[in-house]
């Protein structure tokens, strides 16, 4: 008996496995479909030497491994989303064999169908707004440092004080702008969620992320949603508005447990 497992990427419905032949799973393995009634789990075989409990605990801590696995997982989910409704599974959901996969589909049959009903015909869009503040704050500090040589101590303190007040006011304005943008986008979405701001070391953004929103948008409302994004971009010339999508509905595929 070899140490192999079945890695589950996503659950779908009435899925034709033919649509997935062009996409490969982890380590280049072919994708397969395990059915229970109309539900379909998209799986591939993985080596438990790499995806077993002990190995996973180690590998998940390696950013390089994590990135490769996450990107592959995401590509498979995307391929499924292109041809059928999809409920993405969280990374590293692994069963020992197909019977175990089927048992999960059977156990969660109703809840999974509910999720698929909720996301069918809808796609997720991500909208982030970034207040680019870092660079200017830094140069202002440098300017103060340069002036202190010539100016008096009191003037220096006064300038420092004014700077920190400006900063607080700017933060307050950014907070309000984030709230307003989210409300406007939520109004043209079927569902919406605000996610925590991303880590700049991972995302590469500069400044502060004042909005990181996920929006579930009806297929026929996409134009309306895009128009709203453009309008928000226009009325906030001081912000970088970053619109990405469409995504498979990750942020809205949750089961009530």
């Amino acid at each position: 008996m070899s140490d192999l497992g079945r890695y589950m990427y996503a659950i779908s419905r009435a899925l034709d496995a033919e649509h997935l032949v062009a996409t490969r799973g982890l380590a280049g393995a072919p994708l397969e479909v395990v059915q229970h009634r109309e539900l379909a789990a998209v799986v591939s075989t993985v080596d438990l030497g790499e995806y077993g409990e002990v190995a996973l605990r180690r590998n998940l801590e390696r950013l390089e491994w994590l990135e490769e696995t996450a990107r592959c997982h995401e590509e498979v989910v995307r391929a499924v989303a292109a041809c059928a409704p999809v409920a993405p599974l969280r990374l590293a959901t692994i069963c020992l064999d197909d019977e175990a996969v089927q048992a999960r589909l059977k156990e969660w049959y109703h809840a999974l169908n509910q999720v698929l009903d909720r996301v069918e015909g809808r796609l997720e869009w991500s909208v982030k707004a970034i207040a680019p503040g870092e660079g200017s704050g830094k140069s202002a500090e440098a300017a103060v440092a340069a002036q202190v040589v010539a100016g008096s101590g009191a003037a220096y303190l006064e300038r420092k004080k004014r700077q920190s007040e400006d900063k607080a006011a700017a933060e307050e304005r950014a907070l309000m702008a984030g709230e307003g943008m989210h409300a406007a986008l939520a109004a043209v979405s079927a569902a919406s969620r605000r996610l925590p701001p991303q880590d700049p070391r991972l995302s590469g953004h500069q400044g502060s992320m004042i909005l990181n929103g996920a929006y579930l948008v009806e297929g026929d409302k996409e134009d309306q949603f895009q128009d709203m994004c453009q309008a928000l971009d226009a009325i906030h010339p001081d912000l970088l508005v970053d619109v990405r999508g469409p995504w498979p509905p990750y942020s809205f595929a949750m089961m009530e447990q």
Partner: peptide, 18 residues
């Protein structure tokens, strides 16, 4: 960051055998 945010934090949670 976009991908990790989704595949780690979001999506369906089903306990597998591993």
């Amino acid at each position: 960051a976009d991908i990790l945010e989704r595949v780690l934090d979001k999506g369906i949670i089903i306990a597998g055998d591993i």
